[in-house]
Design a protein around this nucleic acid. Structure first.
Lengths: 350, 350
DNA sequence: GGTGTTGCTGGAAACGTTTACAGAATGGTT
DNA sequence: AACCATTCTGTAAACGTTTCCAGCAACACC
């Protein structure tokens, strides 16, 4: 009776193979059956080009086999290695990856969290730029497992992976000091974002550790973009030509800094060293190759994905592991933009 | 009887509001109802924090409200503007976007096409790197609407948006010739890919149009990466120091070219001009700012998304529009890497 | 030949939603 | 008061799958 023109279903196969839909389902899922039945069903399925309806399967099974990754901006290369890593792992476990760009709109982030209740996605990895009380509330009441990439309050009931910006900044500044720099400027993004705040703390602590004073006139607070970096460094150098190093809170800012320095005829690294952060593909796109602090975005992605998958498989086993919070240790990747003067080749330190 | 601890369903609401599940559904979808009923249902839904199960809804409605975008490599910035545009449009129409990175594996591309039959996605935008007979077969038998970004055979029964690499290359080369360059090298990606093939054709035609001969020793065929660009330009200059311009099939290659030139002490653009292709964010990341041919990736993304949505809405209306194939006209974005000597500011031409 | 064990099988229910249909309530008209 | 038109409501079916359950056949063993 189901010989209509629509896509074949278990029922179509059952008819053609002369068995019940239950047997069709069992055979197709490898749950045994008489050899005779198995071949008949498999032949019918092959002949009809049957593909199971994943939606119906999701409804029955209660899981959609989809995961969501929510980030600020698809264009930011720092997310590239995260996405790549997360995608590889989730794919290996049979999950599809839904991508969501929130454009740094808080309301949009909350919408993603709330939409977990619609059963479209079995879990979420999210990179919030800011953490508001609404975020915490939404995280607490999320309908599916969530892993946050970024810093959270201690008592937040959510797994998280964070970068250690403080140590990262410290490594960068210490490296600059060790190579003889003394007037180290800092170009930061918005200070009221989580990364902006932490990187500023890191810069200050690093200066203190190295016994250098903090000169507020060497700090610029702007946006996380190339153009902002260009402007900031022009202004810094106008105000104080003695700057001999620029530490940037991300690679985009560092590329902007390099452009401004080139334009002003300052040599990198002979006159001014430049160090970026995140070690994105941009670091290898700049000239000279950019020294950058790898905050482990690939590894953060990997860990986040694994944490999420662990929570999901845990859902069946009724046991419940305590909240995990991991921190990835940064490593400085020294390249030509800051290396000892006159060195060309790339060298990596761990 | 459905007072269990699970997520609230229409049935939970129906119980609490004292109505039938049909009324709940109608009220929640704004299909009328007595004012009394409406308020009771809405209150119950709000109190329970009800969120409709999108999977069940998809099963009933036959559409998942999800679209898929399949590309080669998430890390390639040329896809960034495409994804951004597609995401914006699909989101505006209430669709989620599934992202799929095929890593240039043909089998994976075919798997994506075939998986359209599982009803997870209502349509697909795909950027194939190569087009094999299997591709054409899979496109022909796709279970859902598909739009291809890239070149297809004339008779392929699929909507497509293509860039005009030939004209793009022509504009680039003509621009180089007009600014006085005569020894114009060409650094290309693999010639057996669709973009590699077309860009090579464009370069040749452009040289012919300008009355310049083709010197095979000025052409390098390699990969679409920065490092490949570095190597290729070093080799080109070793073999022939008279090169006064490098036209690259890609912004990554162009950045590599710039690095090699810097390293060899050649000034850009005074000694050698550099032009890239795709006008990705990398063009603004290089120094000097990179002249590049905008092949309209954002616009291709926009058109592809709109074509796809049109096909999807068409599915109900039983009418069937003929196959569409649109071509986006490229435009040259002149920046410092090729501009008239001694000019710094960015200038755009259309 | 009875009896238990094993392995398949088909019927039916369930997942949560939307919707066709028929029946009930309402209100207005004669 | 009877009637009709209109609006609203509840029952039940449907989307396509998986799975519980009971039935049944085959088989080996006493």
């Amino acid at each position: 009776m189901v010989t209509t023109g629509g896509a074949p279903t278990v029922e179509t196969i059952a008819e053609r193979a002369g068995v019940s839909i239950a047997s069709v389902s069992r055979v197709l899922n490898g749950h045994g059956g008489r050899p005779d039945t198995v071949t008949r069903v498999e032949r019918a399925a092959a002949e009809l080009g049957y593909v199971p309806n994943a939606v119906a399967r999701s409804l029955k099974g209660g899981r959609s086999m989809q995961l969501t990754f929510a980030m600020q901006d698809i264009g930011n290369p720092v997310y590239v290695s995260m996405v790549r890593e997360i995608q590889a792992i989730t794919k290996a476990h049979g999950y599809r990856l839904l991508l969501h760009s929130t454009d740094a709109v808080v309301e949009d982030e909350l919408a993603v969290l709330r939409s977990l209740a619609d059963r479209t996605s079995d879990g979420l990895v999210i990179c919030p730029l800011r953490i508001t009380p609404e975020h915490l509330e939404a995280l607490r009441t999320a309908a599916q497992p969530v892993v946050v990439i970024g810093s959270l309050p201690e008592d937040a009931p959510v797994d998280s992976v964070r970068a250690d910006s403080v140590t990262g900044a410290e490594k960068a500044v210490r490296h600059l000091v060790e190579t003889g720099r003394r007037r180290i400027a800092f170009v930061n993004g918005p200070a009221d974002t989580v990364p902006g705040h932490n990187r500023q703390r890191g810069y200050r602590r690093a200066l203190a550790d190295c016994g250098l004073g903090l000169d507020p006139s060497l700090v610029a607070t702007t946006d996380f973009t190339i153009e902002a970096g260009v402007r900031a460094v022009h202004e810094l150098l106008e105000a104080d030509p003695s700057v001999d190093a620029v530490f940037c809170a991300n690679d985009q800012l560092a590329l902007g800094a390099a452009q401004a320095l080139h334009t002003r005829g300052r040599r990198i690294p002979e006159d001014v060293a430049v160090v970026g952060m995140d070690d994105t593909s941009l670091a290898r796109a700049s000239w000279p190759l950019l020294t950058s602090v790898d905050l482990g975005s690939a590894e953060r992605g990997r860990i986040a994905a694994e944490m999420l998958l662990a929570r999901i498989t845990e859902r069946d086993s009724s046991s419940r592991a305590p909240v995990r919070s991991e921190t990835v240790t940064p490593r400085l990747v020294v390249r030509a933009s800051s290396g000892p003067v006159r060195r060309g080749a790339e060298e990596e330190t761990r």
